[in-house]
Structures are given as C-alpha cells and as structure tokens.
Simulated assay, not measured.
Amino acid sequence: MNDNVNILIIEDDEDINRLLCHIVSTNGYTPKPAYSGTEALIYIENQKWDMVLLDLMLPGLSGEEILRKVSTESAVPVIIISAKLKTETKIATLKAGADDYITKPFDIEEVSARIEACLRRYRRLSELPVNHQLYHKDLLLDTEAKKAFVKGSELKLTGLEYEILFLLMSSPKKVFTKANVFESVWHEAFHGDDNTINVHMSNIRHKLSKANPDEEYIETIWGMGYRLKT
C-alpha cells in the first residue's frame, strides 16, 4: 500500500468524485474529496499533496484558477479531468502547468494508468543524483533542489518542463526526436501526437527567453528534433 501518497480530488459532481476516490483508493493511495474551488483552496493551503485531480467547471474558484495557483506555487502534478473537449482548452491547461488531460466520460482503467504514469515521473525526479549540477551557458540545473536558474534567478518550471530540460542538458550534444523526448519523459509509446511536445517545449523556451531575452538555449533541428544550442 502507498498510504503516504495523498491525492486531492476536486470535482463538484458527487458521483464522479466518489468514483475517482474509489480509483485512487484501489491503486493504494489516499484520496481527499473537494467539491468546490473554494473548499479545494483551503486544503491546498493547509496540506502537502502528491497529486491533484482537477475538474475545470467548479463552483467558487474555477479549475483554471486552482491550476494557476498550484502550478505557480509548487511542483505538484495536476491531471485535468473535464468534459471540455476543445483542443484549445487542452492546450491552454497544458500551457498553464497541467501534466495531463483526461476527457469525460472517462475509462476507469485509463484514469488509473495515467495516475500511475504521472506519479512514476515525479518519483524519478525525486531520485535524481544528489549534489549534482548541470550547466549550459548561464542556465543552471540543480538536481538536488530540482530547480533551474538563469543568471542566478530561479526559473519556475513544472515537473514535466524540468524533466525535459534535464533530458536535454544530460546529453547536450545529442539531437532528441519528439519520440525520444516523449518516451523518455512520459515513459509511454509515442504515437505521433506533436501537440503535447510542442506545448511543453514552447513553455520552456518562453520561460528561458523571459529570463534572458539575449540568449537562445534550445534549437530545433528541422526534420530531426531538439538539442541545446551552442
């Protein structure tokens, strides 16, 4: 059992919330239901969570507002579970820091598998080498603190963005295809869905550019993939 893994489930529909709690419990984790954005905010501010399952259409604070708060203040993984089907909504939430997006109605086995995959990614982050630092130009990756810095100022990255950057900086001369990146970071087979990679890579580049507009850190090798720019 994994009783020390606490998962906050923010969903206003009681039946769906109960089902998600059951899925989490069946996987051996501890669920905590919240039925509004306002109630969820209280739990977020008063307890440490290992994951958040988040609906977007909530009473009180919206799911987007909750996501913004969680992603800017912590590296807690967030999986969106929503009836909103538009691709634009999915891309917007990924850009805002969500780690995954599941549409309703959902398959129980799929939700279970995605929770497991997401937690595995974050466990790997916690097992990175201690007292190890990677450098590229004025970019520093501290794998003990799991933080990135540009010119000494911290770069606020989501867990997935951190892991992508870690992958690139671990092999600075290697060109990583989109399949390389996806399979190394998500640990799932790549089926050609470019959107997920494009959104996260765009987020990383935007944050790096904002930290230092005069420098370029990642280059696209057309027809091949990505690598660190020398």
Rank of each mutant, 00 (worst) to 15 (best):
40 A>V: 06
41 L>V: 10
42 I>H: 12
43 Y>M: 11
44 I>M: 11
44 I>P: 06
45 E>D: 15
47 Q>C: 11
47 Q>W: 10
50 D>E: 13
52 V>M: 08
53 L>W: 02
54 L>V: 04
55 D>N: 06
56 L>S: 00
56 L>A: 01
57 M>N: 03
62 S>V: 05
62 S>A: 08
62 S>R: 03
63 G>F: 02
63 G>V: 03
68 R>H: 15
68 R>V: 05
71 S>H: 02
71 S>T: 12
72 T>F: 13
72 T>W: 11
72 T>V: 10
73 E>D: 14
74 S>K: 05
76 V>S: 01
77 P>G: 04
78 V>W: 00
80 I>T: 01
84 K>Q: 08
85 L>R: 09
85 L>W: 00
85 L>S: 11
85 L>M: 08
86 K>D: 06
88 E>K: 13
91 I>Y: 03
92 A>L: 13
92 A>N: 15
93 T>W: 13
95 K>E: 15
96 A>V: 09
98 A>R: 01
98 A>G: 11
100 D>E: 13
101 Y>C: 04
101 Y>D: 08
107 D>M: 08
109 E>K: 13
110 E>H: 12
110 E>L: 14
112 S>K: 10
114 R>S: 10
116 E>K: 15
116 E>Q: 14
121 R>F: 02
122 Y>Q: 06
124 R>K: 07
125 L>E: 05
125 L>H: 04
126 S>E: 11
126 S>A: 06
126 S>L: 12
127 E>Q: 14
128 L>G: 01
130 V>L: 11
131 N>V: 08
131 N>T: 12
132 H>T: 14
133 Q>N: 12
134 L>Y: 11
137 K>Y: 08
137 K>P: 04
139 L>N: 02
140 L>H: 02
141 L>R: 00
142 D>Y: 07
145 A>Q: 15
146 K>W: 03
146 K>F: 07
146 K>S: 03
146 K>R: 10
147 K>L: 07
148 A>V: 06
